[in-house]
Amino acid sequence: MGTTVARSAARTWLGGKQREQERRMDMAELIRLRVPGLRLQRSVERQFGEMADAVFDRLAPFLDRARA
């Protein structure tokens, strides 16, 4: 779930007029395509990873209760 939210944020951040091919790329490919420089690419990947973790951390208690 967190990855889905982060991917949507990435797509919004990268712009709404993406070509169909770009919409099918995974987030790492999109970052390599759109973000200049390896250091900045790694930073952006970490930021999206942190967003995915934050979403998961917020949803985990609800998921645990739903399973119980």
Rank of each mutant, 00 (worst) to 15 (best):
F48T: 03
L63F: 13
R42W: 10
Q41D: 03
D53W: 14
V55R: 04
A66R: 05
R24W: 10
L30R: 02
R19M: 08
L33P: 00
F62V: 05
M25K: 04
S8F: 14
G16L: 05
E29L: 03
D64F: 10
G2C: 01
R58A: 06
D64H: 07
G15I: 01
W13H: 14
V55Y: 03
M27C: 06
R32A: 05
R58G: 08
L59S: 00
G16S: 14
G16C: 15
L30N: 00
D57K: 15
R65V: 10
D64E: 06
S43K: 13
K17C: 14
F62P: 09
I31W: 01
R11P: 04
V55H: 04
W13F: 13
D26I: 15
D57L: 12
G15R: 00
T4A: 10
M25N: 02
R7T: 13
F56P: 04
L33I: 02
V35G: 12
L63V: 12
I31L: 02
R65C: 15
D64S: 06
L30Q: 00
M1A: 15
M51A: 11
E29W: 01
M1W: 11
A54S: 03
M51S: 05
D57I: 06
A52D: 01
S43T: 10
L14Q: 08
M51E: 07
F62I: 10
V35D: 03
L59T: 05
P36C: 09
F48I: 09
D64M: 05
R32E: 13
R42Q: 10
R67E: 11
A60D: 04
E20T: 14
A10C: 02
R19Q: 14
E22Y: 05
L38Y: 03
T4D: 07
Q47E: 09
M27L: 13
R58C: 12
D64Q: 06
R11C: 00
R67T: 14
Q18T: 03
A9D: 01
T4M: 09
G16M: 05
L30A: 02
T4R: 08
D53E: 14
R32Y: 14
G37E: 08
T3M: 09
A10L: 01
E20R: 08
A52T: 00
E50G: 11
E29H: 02
R11H: 00
G2D: 02
G16H: 11
G37W: 08
A10T: 05
A66D: 04
R46P: 01
L63W: 09
R24L: 13
L33V: 02
T3P: 08
R19E: 15
P36L: 04
R23L: 13
P61Y: 07
A68Q: 10
M51T: 10
G49T: 00
D53V: 09
V44Q: 00
D57W: 12
D57G: 14
L30M: 06
D53A: 03
A54G: 06
V44A: 01
D57T: 06
R19V: 12
M27F: 15
P61L: 01
F62G: 12
R46S: 01
M1H: 13
E50M: 10
T3Y: 11
A68W: 12
A66I: 11
A9Y: 04
L63I: 13
I31D: 00
F62E: 15
A68N: 12
R42N: 07
R24V: 11
E22V: 02
A68G: 07
A60P: 04
R23E: 11
R58S: 14
R32L: 12
E20S: 10
